[in-house]
Design a protein around this nucleic acid. Sequence first.
DNA 1: AGTGAAAACCGGATTCC
DNA 2: GGAATCCGGTTTTCACT
Lengths: 156, 156
Amino acid sequence: MADDIDDVDRAILHALQEDARNMSSGDIAERTGTSDSTVRKRIQRLESDGVIKGYSAAIDYQQSGYPLRMLLFCTASISERGDMIPNILDIDGVVSVQELVTGEQNLLVTVVGEEDSDITSVAQALLDMGLTVADEVLVRSHETKPFGEFASESDE
Amino acid sequence: MADDIDDVDRAILHALQEDARNMSSGDIAERTGTSDSTVRKRIQRLESDGVIKGYSAAIDYQQSGYPLRMLLFCTASISERGDMIPNILDIDGVVSVQELVTGEQNLLVTVVGEEDSDITSVAQALLDMGLTVADEVLVRSHETKPFGEFASESDE
DNA sequence: AGTGAAAACCGGATTCC
DNA sequence: GGAATCCGGTTTTCACT
């Protein structure tokens, strides 16, 4: 519950963002000058505190047969906005929902699909929920990077 | 190089999106009705083909001391747009860059930071690179979900 | 926070289909 | 060529200090 993130925690977060699957506790222990059991306990704490929300493979959707990625900018009434996020995430093809602090277009839904009809069916589902799709933008490329502030001073 | 994604591959991708760190090859083998060595070979192939780009921990930046998340909509000249993406990713605080297929605001940069000055310094760095920051939007919440199409018919 | 033993997991080589 | 089995080394887990 408390957010006492120290340098060891930051190094752990950085390592797990780099390679969550192959980075062993021992590897991280070397970087931090602690022992592997310490690292394991820290990780457990970070997980139960919710700092680490999970571990996920980064997939290239293009190469796996789903070349379309689109951003749908939506408008929702403020009152219902928070409640419908779980429902939006349940729509097939939706990979992320972001709540925006803006006047009108206050929900940004990211959709992945194989063909155009996959996207439009998501848009339809959003309409059925009472949302207005104000804008649609195709994403040509998408790159992600581990958050740099978790890195130690020396290694970046 | 080839994208021969079959049901076994999709099950693997789905499992690794759910929990890339704790899901063992044996676990996935049970789900797919194959052996663990088969799963490991498939994973290696998916990795070297670039379908799996990596494994990353999902961090709650709010809880780890970086409460600010912002979207910066930028304008770049078409010609230089692709080349500068690596440079943008190198800016401290930038966690993702998306190339948008739109007339003007064709780059979407996501920034995470502790305070307002972290964001403005990124914006300044973008300006120094010759980009125009056309719009800035604060993100109140952000949720991600594994891509549903990889799931088998029965388990979702 | 560290130690030690049992269990699980991974990687590679081999064999089978 | 792809999938299954076996084995040596590593990693994780759990109880204890």
